[in-house]
């Protein structure tokens, strides 16, 4: 595992000490389609003694408009999020792509706005994708037991190439006892979602997703795990349409379910 962790080309990020409080940016995808994952994040962090603040006025990071060539609209949405995260707590984001948007693209969106740029930059520095936050900051002590299971991990392109956190989800899962984590063929390849790409180029998106789903099914895993809600919408939709028994779960939901002490 340590050899695999060294694959990451970038310098390791400097992580803060374990905080008492964090913000949760829940993402618009989880808000409407997988709130259980958001609640699981809160459960996981509270169990570790961290208080989670979820500003009720949050909506979306603005990525759909931004990646489609509408920066003004993205800026209008992002600007409303900024003051909600003005304290100095870390901001936990259970999605590689929303995290990438906030860490890398918000400072660019507000580059010409001297009033908002300092806050955007401060937020960018405090954004942590869930898996890196758990692995490097929280360092949970997982239960020593668990049913034997084989899962396959799908890492998003944003986690891999923007956040450099594709290995942290893998490393977290490797800490769980009796869990076999398998890799699918062409593991590093996109699932074909790409936000608006999936509707602008539906045939291409479907072709890429179909190959990804073939590779996931070929692993004979019982569940697929991913830390990205967008990929999960696309992959679960494709799996369901083709009548597969395999389903993907958000990493947070999976970790919470698997590590709860028996009631």
């Amino acid at each position: 595992m340590s050899a695999a962790l060294n694959e990451a080309p970038n310098c390791p990020r400097r992580y803060p000490a374990k905080p008492t409080d964090v913000y949760l940016f829940g993402t618009c995808v989880l808000d409407l389609f997988d709130p259980e994952a958001g609640v699981s994040v809160v459960s996981l962090l509270e169990r570790e003694g961290i208080r989670v603040h979820y500003p009720q006025d949050q909506t979306c990071c603005g990525q759909p408009a931004y990646t489609s060539g509408f920066p003004d609209q993205a800026r209008a949405v992002a600007a409303r999020q900024l003051p909600l995260f003005a304290g100095d707590w870390p901001i936990v984001v259970p999605s590689g792509s929303c995290g990438g948007m906030m860490r890398h693209h918000w400072p660019r969106l507000f580059a010409d706005d001297p009033a908002l740029l300092p806050l955007a930059t401060s937020i960018a520095e405090r954004v942590l994708e869930l898996s890196e936050f758990l692995l490097h900051v929280v360092k949970p002590r997982w239960p020593r037991a668990g049913a034997a299971e084989r899962v396959v991990l799908h890492t998003s392109c944003s986690a891999r190439r923007e956040m450099n956190t594709h290995l942290s989800a893998r490393a977290l899962l490797a800490q769980l006892p009796n869990l076999e984590v398998v890799l699918q063929d062409h593991e590093a390849e996109c699932c074909g979602f790409g936000g608006a790409f999936s509707v602008k180029h539906p045939e291409l998106s479907a072709a890429i997703a179909s190959d990804k789903v073939d590779a996931l099914e070929a692993t004979a895993a019982t569940r697929m795990v991913s830390a990205d809600g967008g990929c999960l919408l696309n992959l679960n939709g494709t799996l369901q349409k083709r009548g597969s028994a395999l389903r993907g779960e958000h990493l947070a939901s999976f970790l919470w379910q698997r590590t709860q002490a028996p009631a």
């Binding site: 409407l32 609640v39 979820y54 997703a209 679960n236």
Partner: peptide
């Protein structure tokens, strides 16, 4: 639309994360 050409329909959850967090608070 084109989404369901190759995928099952998108179906919202019973309650949003906003609501779940509000009742949790």
């Amino acid at each position: 639309g084109v989404w369901t050409g190759s995928r099952a329909p998108l179906r919202p959850a019973a309650r949003s994360l906003h609501e779940r967090m509000k009742s949790r608070a």
